[in-house]
Design a protein around this nucleic acid. Structure first.
Length: 271
DNA sequence: CGTCCCACCTGATTGC
DNA sequence: TGCAATCAGGTGGGAC
């Protein structure tokens, strides 16, 4: 499940491989995967240069003036750079052929919350209403945006209009590091604890980006644009460790549901 | 507006 | 062993 560190990893490796490349042709293999824009507009990408690859929240963005191609990765989005010889693997929905015979391929085996948006100048598409990026938000903005809410803290961390980029893995990991139980209502959390959570969010995201993201056991394991697997998975302290012992206090980790998501926490370390 | 809940999709896991 | 039921999870839309 690509979250901010996985999207950032893809964007960085894609930028290293494809920034400056000229688009020769774009093929949409599954018509309903284009959520914004049209086939006609897609054809206009031919001859356009990809000047940069950036990221916003969990979205990877190909900057190809005057267009922006936004890749929403959803649950299982994978983006790879390939030589164009071999046929694309199953579930490949978009193929961007470059002038130098390489291809950028976007595959997604579960088409949930995923798609491609081809945006013109002023269009925001899925970027509209997105909160500040979680890896760079200031402590003040973090606290201000959460203050006064009644929802469980984890639900707010997952809410992309408050904070962009945190998903189930990093919400659980940050809350563990901050010692806060995911079910706690925000109004019952002190500013000092929110400040600690802010540090934990930034720290866990930075560490995960350094490790190239998390690869969890799903149908198509996460990898960067070159196929390198994420190395942060072994650093997880709670996510995916339900029933195992807390790395810090040895108590058995518990599982519950918050905002419809499986949530793992330590009943002793998180209050 | 804030909060909550469900549908969407399909591979992997669990249950019988 | 084999097949059916269940689970996982990000987003967006509707209900309240």
């Amino acid at each position: 499940m690509p979250e901010l560190p996985e999207a950032e990893t893809i964007a960085r490796t894609l930028a290293a491989a494809g920034a400056g490349a000229i688009i020769r042709q774009v093929r949409l293999l599954r018509r309903d995967f284009l959520k914004t824009g049209s086939q006609a507009r897609l054809r206009q990408l031919a001859g356009v240069k990809i000047v940069a690859v950036t990221r916003r929240g969990k979205c990877v963005i190909l900057e190809a003036p005057p267009w922006r191609v936004v890749l929403q990765l959803g649950m299982a989005g994978r983006v790879y750079v390939h030589e164009s010889g071999r046929p694309p693997p199953p579930h490949t929905h978009l193929v961007i052929s470059l002038a130098d015979e390489r291809q950028i391929r976007y595959a997604n085996s579960r088409r949930i919350a995923a798609g491609v948006h081809l945006l013109a100048g002023g269009q925001a598409g899925p970027l509209a209403g997105m909160g500040l990026d979680a890896d760079r938000i200031s402590r003040n903005d973090f606290i201000t945006r959460l203050a006064g809410r009644t929802a469980p803290i984890k639900a707010a961390l997952l809410n992309q209009s408050i904070l962009a980029g945190v998903g189930n893995i990093y919400a659980d990991e940050a809350l563990f590091r901050a010692g806060i139980r995911p079910t706690r209502r925000i109004r019952r959390i002190s500013r000092a604890e929110l400040a600690k959570l802010h540090r934990a969010v930034r720290a866990v995201l930075a560490e995960a980006i350094d490790a190239g993201g998390s690869t969890v056991s799903v149908s198509t394991p996460f990898a960067d644009a070159n196929g390198q697997l994420g190395r942060f998975t072994i650093c997880h302290r709670v996510y995916g460790r339900y029933g195992q012992r807390c790395r810090r206090c040895r108590v058995v980790l518990r599982r519950t549901t918050v905002a419809g998501r499986t949530t793992t926490y330590c009943p002793r370390c998180q209050r």
